[in-house]
Nucleic acid binder design. Structure first.
Lengths: 185, 185
DNA sequence: AGCATAAATAATAA
DNA sequence: TTATTATTTATGCT
């Protein structure tokens, strides 16, 4: 049994809860509605969870991580936390939408990110580099930061690019190795 | 120079285009509006580009890849292609929204994906498994590929999962001992 | 024309 | 919350 229930279990109880009065129920339903709406409105503004978190951290008191926004949207938090967070998000989002109406540039300024952060150009690795990377990967698919730095230096690629290469390589491996698909866990 | 212009360059020309009549301009603006709207509506339905592409491939004639949907949303295609694709997407999306109103289950059925394809859960090790892993780790923190395979077999876990456990365990050790605190990651 | 995969974003075990 | 995994989006390439 759990001592602390999450909103999920409040909203979708396995059985009808007795002893929950009408007022509380409405309140929770309200939060659920808002959470769903919040995500849509956030996406409509073209904002990421990270951006919202960073912007809130800047304007509001405490720190809000990307994870916190994610958990709110999925209602994977206690009702009490959600109750507390809801008005903060509501107010902030409304203001963001206001800025957006005046032009997207204003929104971006409000959010605090660089005005025109462009996506990084897709890197093309040379066949030689791929070969070297694969050799390292076979030895250790999860190199340490230090190791990544060294590999990047050796191949004369951006460190971040090498790091991401390992991330994606691990991913590909998992997706391909369906051999252990029937393992129970 | 490019031989084939994309919508991007049509919509945001570096200089005002002369010789473009009013009717054409309105039409292009319409597509731009729709593309923006399409994305928001798609996200509101909680659908991915991949899902849309697959669903379209199933119901409409030709094949639509995730890339195609992506390129339409970003208008990284020729006006002619966009013109052609727009009504198809419009019709499909309207129908999808209709199904969604009848319940999300219906939408998922319409889209054709598995009704409740859940995200793969992150591995949790049992206390017993942790204990065995720690015993191995104390003996050798950097097992060979062969050794990892054997441990995985013994514990009946995915080999990759075991390999990563060792990586993480080594990492944790490093982090705890603060010596390498400045190692980038 | 779209595959393969790099990059970005969301979700989550610890 | 942090640090990582899982998922989605975007794009280089032929």
């Amino acid at each position: 049994g759990q001592l602390v229930s999450t909103l999920q279990s409040f909203f979708f109880p396995l059985e009808p809860q007795s002893g929950v009065n009408e007022e509380e129920a409405i309140n929770l339903e309200e939060i659920r509605e808002f959470a769903k709406n919040f995500k849509i409105r956030r996406l409509s503004l073209g904002l990421t969870q990270t951006q919202v978190g960073q912007a809130l951290t800047a304007t509001e008191g405490p720190a809000y991580s990307q994870s916190a926004i994610c958990r709110f949207e999925k209602l994977d938090i206690t009702p009490k936390s959600a109750q507390k967070l809801k008005p903060v998000l509501e107010r902030w989002l409304a203001e963001a939408e206001l800025w957006n109406q005046k032009g997207q540039q204003n929104l971006m300024e409000f959010v605090g990110g660089e005005p025109s952060k462009k996506r990084k150009r897709r890197t093309s690795f040379t066949p030689q580099a791929i070969e070297v990377l694969n050799t390292y990967f076979d030895k250790n698919s999860l190199p340490t930061g230090q190791e990544i730095t060294e590999i990047a230096k050796e191949l004369n690629y951006d460190r971040e690019v090498v790091r991401v290469w390992f991330c994606n390589r691990r991913q590909t491996l998992k997706n391909t190795s369906k051999i252990n698909a029937f393992q129970a866990h």
